[in-house]
Design a protein around this nucleic acid. Structure first.
Length: 734
DNA sequence: TACTCAACTTAGAAACCACGTC
DNA sequence: GACGTGGTTTCTAAGTTGAGTA
């Protein structure tokens, strides 16, 4: 039930591909893949390929496997004919399976019919095979017609040998003598019946004649009047959808997929039309899928309503990730040594459920059981499992707007605010420690200096060969820094160049204090490129020290503190009370950007960046031209109004003035947008906004300058920071 | 002190979707 | 109505931290 959206979307995206791309995709699909290694999406594609190959084979042989099978199983066919009644009820005894197929030529929903044992085997040739079988049935109908046709159609219709045989047999049968007496009686009875029927027909005709509204003998109503009295019972509606029995399942990619009644009904519409030419047309198929996806959306909404919430202390709380990660290929970032490994399918037997003892324990899917049900109220997760690639535990937890997450978030910012009162002493202490006799202390001091000044991450040690080679402060190696006693006019410059979290490059040239520079030289003495810069330091050691300086202080608190304090300072510096609203928002974004740069939050430039920038610039040019023209027209209008002293012309002048003003405002907005976009090209603002900036700073700023909160926080952010929105006034200081 | 592991936060990419413009 | 664009949401990888253990 959780795999609904992905494959279907893939289907749609496949449909939307240009022809060449589709062909390419198909070609790729045709390459054999080891079973189970294909990602879920790929599996869907594999299914398509399967269908296609089989269809091709059918074309080549002029006889699909299914057809072959049907010819071989004449007995079954005959039985089927006899069971025409059962056939009518076939709607309730079929399975449907969606397969990706050539959108040009074949159907999408494929019928699965029971085999002799009543089991539902995937129909290998499915649409095509089935289609032919049906054509066969229809063919028999037309055969009988053909016989009749031949009798009065001048031999245009021809008969096959077996048909002729049948006909002859029938005629021979008619020639056989009957009992005369019986024949006369029957004849007499038929004659009487015929007369009675004729009389009835005549009576009915007379009645109809009498009832006929001889409107042509009446006067015409005046124009526009269609009638003077109208009464009826209203229309008849289509009967409500009768759901398929529970035993009948909808299959996607070979797996049963539960559908809502609505979605099931819509799927059945397509299934009913499989034999029709419509289903071979791309427009028809695309439109169908677009509308069907709407039903999928409803289905997702239903899933969300059912599984997306939990009850925590009798409050309905949204769950962040209620869907188990589907099997796929592991996408480790950067040069991850395990990228491409198979992430296995997670079953209920892998899942530990956590809930309270007195709650209703969730039911595992039929035929399965949970790995464990636990009642641990000291943790926040609702379910967990161990993934197979890295052996780490994964959790289902609450959404960011929940009490549990909000409370922790608030605490985090309070700890960071507390650091404000200690930071002067801490800085003084680590500066003193630059000269400590203990190497360990000196290293700790320099590392802390970097963490504080550059907002570097702590940098845990990592197991070699298990993850990508990335580092943080404590795990920096000699090869990651270069020392310049003087560079571009600055003294004591350190050049950092390393891969940080997510393999994002950190590159920075920073002038540092003389003592730091000297210490770095010392730390690097007699070391190789690959040696640890801080060989006497680890993150637990550093954090232990920080705990002694302030309760709750860890390395990452410095990042939060420096990010938030930077935002506050930048907002103070950049906000001009006189400037327009777009300019104020630009100032906010610039302050946010300063933090993102500090934290090295980068993003890949959007693929369409250059094009969209060029579009915006051409719009700006067009607007400038428009303003020039409007100004010229205004000047002329002014001149004319002055010469003729006309009130009407004065109004024209006013309207033109407003036009110029409006265009200038539009231009300003566009230019601000262009600047903002250019400056944001490779910077991700969202990470710091979501994780490092005390929301109370932003809320207070918005209130102070009457900027709508929605201008800087979208719904997700407003939801997450509801606590801050509610409690913050304009005078808040971080 | 070193190590491991559970629990949680932080992170960027991709998918999705709404909206404005033509 | 089609299309492009950019904001929003989802997904899940990759960090940090602290507790337990030897």
């Amino acid at each position: 039930m959780t795999q609904l959206s992905l494959p279907v979307e893939d289907l749609v995206s496949f449909h939307n591909l240009p022809e060449k791309a589709r062909d390419k995709k198909k070609k790729l699909k045709s390459e054999p893949k080891p079973e189970g290694k294909a990602k879920k999406k790929d599996k869907g594609k594999a299914a398509v390929q399967d269908g296609e190959t089989q269809r091709q084979r059918g074309k080549e042989n002029n006889m699909p496997v299914a057809e072959e099978r049907e010819i071989k199983s004449d007995k079954r066919k005959e039985k089927k004919k006899k069971d025409s009644k059962k056939k009518k009820e076939k709607n309730s005894s079929e399975h449907y399976e969606i397969q990706q197929q050539d959108p040009q030529t074949s159907s999408v929903i494929v019928k699965l019919e029971p085999d002799e044992d009543g089991d539902f085997a995937p129909a290998k040739k499915q649409s095509k095979g089935k289609k032919r079988a049906r054509q066969g049935e229809a063919g028999e109908l037309s055969k009988s017609k053909k016989v009749k046709l031949e009798e009065d159609a001048d031999g245009v219709e021809t008969e096959t040998k077996p048909q002729k045989k049948k006909k002859i047999k029938k005629e021979e049968g008619n020639k056989k003598p009957k009992k005369e007496e019986g024949a006369i009686k029957a004849k007499k009875k038929t004659q009487e019946e015929k007369e009675a029927a004729a009389a009835l027909k005549l009576k009915k005709k007379e009645e109809e004649e009498q009832m006929r509204w001889r409107w042509w003998e009446e006067e015409k109503y005046e124009d526009g009047i269609k009638w003077k009295f109208l009464e009826h019972e209203g229309p008849v509606f289509a009967p409500p959808y009768e759901p398929l029995p529970d035993s009948v399942k909808f299959y996607y990619d070979g797996k049963p997929l539960p559908l809502s009644l609505q979605a099931e009904e819509v799927a059945s519409f397509f299934a009913k039309m499989l034999d029709h030419e419509y289903t071979t047309k791309e427009i028809f198929r695309n439109n169908y899928f677009m509308d069907w996806r709407k039903k999928i959306k409803e289905e997702n909404e239903k899933l969300l309503q059912e599984y997306g919430y939990c009850s925590m202390d009798h409050h309905r709380e949204r769950i962040g990730n209620f869907k188990i990660e589907p099997p796929a290929l592991f996408r480790g970032r950067g040069d991850h040594p395990k990228q491409g490994m198979l992430k296995k399918r997670i079953l209920p037997e892998d899942i530990i459920i956590n809930c309270s003892k007195d709650s209703k324990i969730p039911e595992p899917p039929p035929g399965h059981k949970w790995k464990e049900v636990r009642h641990d109220n000291t943790v926040t997760w609702l379910a967990s499992w161990t993934e197979n690639v890295q052996g780490s535990v994964k959790y289902i937890m609450l959404n960011a707007n929940s009490k549990l997450k909000g409370e922790k978030d608030w605490e985090k910012y309070e700890v960071a605010r507390k650091l404000k009162h200690h930071v002067v002493t801490i800085r003084k202490t680590y500066r003193e420690n630059f000269k400590s006799k203990e190497m360990k202390v000196r290293q700790r001091a320099v590392a802390l200096y970097f963490i504080d000044k550059l907002a570097l991450r702590a940098g845990n040690e990592k197991e070699e060969g298990e993850t990508a080679d990335t580092v943080g402060c404590c795990s920096l190696r000699v090869e990651h820094i270069k020392l310049y006693p003087e560079l571009d006019g600055d003294k004591y410059v350190v050049e950092f160049d390393f891969l940080g979290k997510d393999s994002i490059r950190y590159y920075n040239k920073v002038p540092v204090e003389k003592q730091v520079f000297k210490n770095l030289q010392l730390f690097m003495e007699n070391k190789q490129e690959g040696d640890d810069l801080f060989d006497r330091l680890s993150t637990p050691l550093l954090n232990k020290h920080l705990q002694s300086l302030m309760e709750g202080l860890t390395a990452k608190v410095f990042r939060t503190y420096n990010a938030s304090i930077t935002l506050q300072q930048q907002l103070q510096e950049l906000t001009d009370p006189e400037e327009s609203m777009p300019s104020k928002i630009l100032s906010y974004n610039r302050a946010n950007r300063a933090v993102a740069i500090l934290c090295n939050h980068q993003r890949a430039p959007p693929k369409t960046f250059d094009q969209s920038m060029a579009n915006l610039k051409s719009k700006i040019d067009a607007k400038k031209e428009q303003i020039l023209l409007a100004k010229k027209e205004l000047k002329e209008a002014k001149k004319e109004a002055k010469e003729k002293e006309s009130e009407k012309l004065n109004k024209v002048v006013e309207s033109k003035k407003r036009g110029v003003q409006r265009a200038e405002e539009q231009l300003m907005r566009m230019e601000v947008q262009a600047t903002d976009r250019e400056e944001n090209k490779q910077i991700a603002l969202s990470t710091s906004k979501l994780n490092y900036l005390d929301p109370r700073i932003s809320v207070a700023w918005c209130k102070k300058w009457t900027v709508g909160l929605e201008k800087i926080y979208n719904k997700t952010y407003r939801d997450k920071f509801a606590w801050a929105v509610d409690m913050t006034e304009t005078d808040f200081i971080f």
